[in-house]
Design a protein around this nucleic acid. Structure first.
Lengths: 354, 354
DNA sequence: AAAGTGAATGTAAACGATTACATAATGCCT
DNA sequence: AGGCATTATGTAATCGTTTACATTCACTTT
């Protein structure tokens, strides 16, 4: 068979008849379509034997409700949009997994909106959402769809939203996150406790709410230990391995070299370690490196990375649960904070001469 | 504000009126709804000034077509399902990125179906698909939804499908993949060319079509170099870091230790290297390790991993393009093969004593 | 000038469910 | 026995599009 035209939809004639409709079921069970609908939506209101008959007819016909019709009438889509800054980022995969899992159990589908740094895409997903293609959304990007507002001053998007990981300032929506500030402080203090005095800080995008929290934690930790905050020691990255590599170069070019680097993502930490290693600088003997997230690769990096563990799957689950609660008219806490943990591995040691 | 009940849908009264419908636009532009619809679907058939008037009305009302209604009537959803075995697997992220990107440009949304090893989920997505919630699907899992068939013996799912990465035996659908066999052979021969004679092979699930191809390539390579295939040297994993770690333990326990290990995923290779390193076995001096995929972490692993590069984004794009072609009634090649490349880094060296 | 053509638009019937409202049947109470 | 809940079911309007078919009008063509 060559490259001829291809269509997979069943031909118009033939046996493979159209999918069964509610009518077909109704006819077969000798009831009205309303009853069939009720059997599915609120089984308790229809009598036991009718229900049995209908269910049998459903099984026999292989009936599955047409979602478009259902959605049109009931104004629900049973779809949730998950907006994230960068799908290719390892950090998100397990979170997505957790979201998907929970959503699935609740009968919702998940649509992924990968922003990938494009404002055009953001606009698209905003339109997508306001067009009613989803019942709700989980936002991992710290934005509120450009917060456009319609003529009345109402938020343009008025479906349930949940902010995950990154709080959205001024948005009156539930937030699921970890205590970034506390975690960051904890790591900073740990580094100090190991004898470090000159601790560089490799941050993600600085305008990031989450990063603002973390850098606060870093400064908290410094202050608590009686150390001064030095802006020169702060380097801005974008969470990627590459930005870790670049930061490493920057650091190596400096005369006053820190004895430790605290990175706000494991990927950056791993990239950084790569640069250091290639330059013959040993981790942790010459420079200690700490990460944030505890992605799978952190444990198998060489040296194994000391980092802050984020419960990624649980974060996803919590966000999805909150959203589903909202969607089903239940209440949900304003803010959910999950615990992080400092996991000590091999990338941090005492600096020489301490 | 405390944890009270929350609903975000706009209240029934008030200004924030319902979204504009096609009726509203039609009224405003003083045309019929049919004309409005035509302006959107086939602008060339409506006269220039009418079109202008309608477009203005659309802009003024902020009209966005209701997807459920559109879908109900036209029997299209503009949604594509992507089924994959494990969302948490790094290998897929960039593929998904490529798919999403291409789908997005063509005006399609992407729904992710994470199988996560659960047959229950597979059934769910099959039902989901046959319920007409998506126009097509990309299958990364090497299965065809349990190939259930309806009474007529027709395949249960009759929408356009595309198999990505993993060919689906017996399924008459386009396949997008790399030449696994050739790639595997290439790596094997490279290993031999570096002086290895005892090359262990860490495979993914053995019933996997893709793995069957790869192990063939491994045997091809061995044979071409005059070496015997030894089943004892084959270890089965599941692509994860953990299975690499386990395989490492297995290997270390052996009396007849291979000088090189070829792993069919980078994640396994990295896990394996971790175990070796922890046991004091040096890579590549004591044992060489090769991977497959060339994920981001391969380049920054320690030592940097010699591996087979798969064009992941391009694979995703190709699959999405093929599917969109199908969806729009165009033809698409039966099979698309993308090129892999052997990327030589630092994890393979000559064995001592060669 | 009658007939035929083509372009632009309108009319109204689908698409397949949900659900407010109406109706019928049953049992209970006084 | 008559009225009143209560329960089970049916009737039909509705959701917002798309699109087959009909109509109108302005030109050609013979």
């Amino acid at each position: 068979m060559s490259t001829g035209g291809r269509k997979f939809r069943a031909g118009s004639g033939e046996g493979a008849g159209r999918a069964a409709r509610i009518q077909d079921v109704a006819r077969l069970a000798d009831v009205s379509t309303a009853t069939v609908s009720r059997v599915l939506a609120s089984p308790n209101v229809v009598s036991e034997d009718t229900r049995a008959r209908v269910l049998e007819a459903i099984a026999k016909t292989g009936y599955v409700p047409n979602p478009a019709a259902r959605s049109l009438r009931s104004q629900k889509t049973y779809m949730v949009l998950v907006v994230l800054p960068n799908l290719a980022n390892t950090f998100f995969s397990k979170i997505l997994s957790g979201i998907e899992e929970t959503l699935f159990e609740a009968g919702y589908g998940m649509i992924i909106g990968d922003l990938d740094g494009s404002p055009e895409k953001e606009a698209h997903f905003a339109a997508f959402t306001s067009a009613g293609r989803v019942d709700g959304a989980i936002l991992l990007n710290g934005h509120l769809f450009g917060q456009s507002r319609d003529a009345q001053g109402e938020p343009a998007i008025n479906i349930p939203l949940v902010a995950l990981c990154e709080a959205i300032p001024g948005a009156n929506i539930p937030q699921i996150e970890v205590d970034n500030r506390a975690a960051s402080r904890r790591m900073t203090q740990y580094l100090v406790s190991r004898g470090h005095r000159l601790i560089a800080y490799l941050t993600g995008p600085a305008d990031n709410v989450l990063e603002k929290e973390r850098i606060r934690g870093y400064r908290d930790g410094l202050r608590a230990e009686g150390l001064a905050f030095d802006p020169e020691l702060v380097i801005e990255g974008d969470y990627t391995i590459k930005s870790g590599i670049d930061a490493g170069r920057d650091l190596l070019g400096r005369s006053r070299r820190p004895t430790a680097v605290f990175c706000t993502s494991d990927e950056m930490a791993i990239g950084l370690m790569r640069t250091l290693h290639s330059a013959g600088v040993r981790v942790p003997q010459d420079i200690s490196v700490a990460g944030f997230d505890d992605i799978e690769f952190a444990a198998v990096a060489e040296p194994a990375l000391t980092t802050i563990h984020q419960p990624r799957r649980e974060l996803g689950q919590a966000a999805a649960t909150a959203l589903v609660d909202l969607l089903q008219g239940r209440s949900t806490p304003e803010r959910i904070r999950l615990k992080t943990e400092l996991v000590v591995r091999d990338s941090v040691a005492e600096p020489v001469g301490t």
